[in-house]
């Protein structure tokens, strides 16, 4: 039985990774054409990529956007999760529903809304608007991760600190926050990963000055197709795998999707 399952999973894994393997493989072709199998090995398209400023600029932009929105979302997410867990406000369920709504509302809908709304308020193409959208998109991941993290440790330690005379903000800063560190780092990395690969909402709302890496790839590919995009994808795969390995070490994956 177990053997049958293993066989099934091997097939499934092959199915899941097939297109990615092909793209990475193809990135090493020396020709302009897409062929698998490739005829010989070459790093031509990687050299091409690094001499191509637009992709590099976009990579930096995505990096900056990802860091800022992950940082902001982790901070907001921690505060919100703390408020939900320790404060038991009226309508806590509805609030959690609101914070995690971007998971349920189709991204296209939000993208359209942001396109129209940023135009209405005169913030179309503004970087802060893009940051705000990304924070909204990744907030559910931060809130869920940190909720799990805060629930995992009772309020007793914090309570103890406060009964010994600490103010709440000191108790939170010096007791709770360090205990949640693992959760914070997981939340941060998860948010970064999601922001870094977000394409739909960004495509709709980002102005011309802010073409993130995924949007740059989308625009590039819809107009011309050469193995540069395979090379850039291969590099993104590398970075993402590294990040997820860190996430995995922190045991974050299980916490998020409960």
């Amino acid at each position: 039985m177990r053997r049958l399952l293993t066989l099934f999973n091997l097939l499934m894994v092959a199915y899941v990774v097939a297109p990615i393997v092909l793209v990475v493989w193809m990135s090493f072709t020396p020709t302009m054409l897409f062929e698998v199998p490739i005829r010989s090995f070459s790093l031509r398209w990687y050299e091409e990529l690094f001499s191509y400023d637009a992709f590099i600029d976009s990579a930096w932009l995505s990096l900056r956007l990802g860091l800022i929105s992950a940082l902001a979302a982790t901070a907001l997410g921690f505060l919100a999760a703390y408020g939900l867990v320790r404060g038991r406000p009226p309508g806590a369920g509805a609030l959690l529903g609101l914070f995690t709504a971007p998971l349920i509302v189709p991204a296209v809908v939000y993208g359209i809304a942001m396109l129209q709304f940023t135009n209405l308020v005169g913030l179309y193409g503004a970087f802060p608007a893009l940051v705000a959208a990304h924070v909204v998109i990744v907030l559910p991941f931060a809130v869920r991760t940190l909720l799990a993290s805060l629930e995992g440790q009772g309020p007793e330690l914090e309570w103890a600190a406060m009964s010994l005379g600490a103010r709440r903000r000191h108790a939170v800063l010096l007791v709770t926050l360090p205990l949640c560190l693992r959760g914070m780092v997981s939340a941060f990395l998860f948010c970064f990963l999601i922001s870094f690969s977000e394409v739909t909402v960004t495509l709709f709302m980002a102005g011309p000055a802010h073409q993130t890496l995924p949007v740059r790839i989308f625009n590039y590919v819809s107009d011309r197709i050469d193995p540069t995009m395979a090379a850039v994808s291969a590099l993104v795969v590398l970075v993402s795998v590294a990040l997820v390995l860190v996430l995995n070490r922190l045991g974050a994956l299980a916490a998020v999707r409960k």
Binding site: I20, V23, S197, I217, I225, A230, S240, V241
Partner: peptide, 13 residues
């Protein structure tokens, strides 16, 4: 792993 690759590029694969 499918999440590490741009949807467009994956479709190309």
């Amino acid at each position: 792993s499918p999440w590490f690759v741009n949807a467009v590029v994956k479709s190309f694969g």
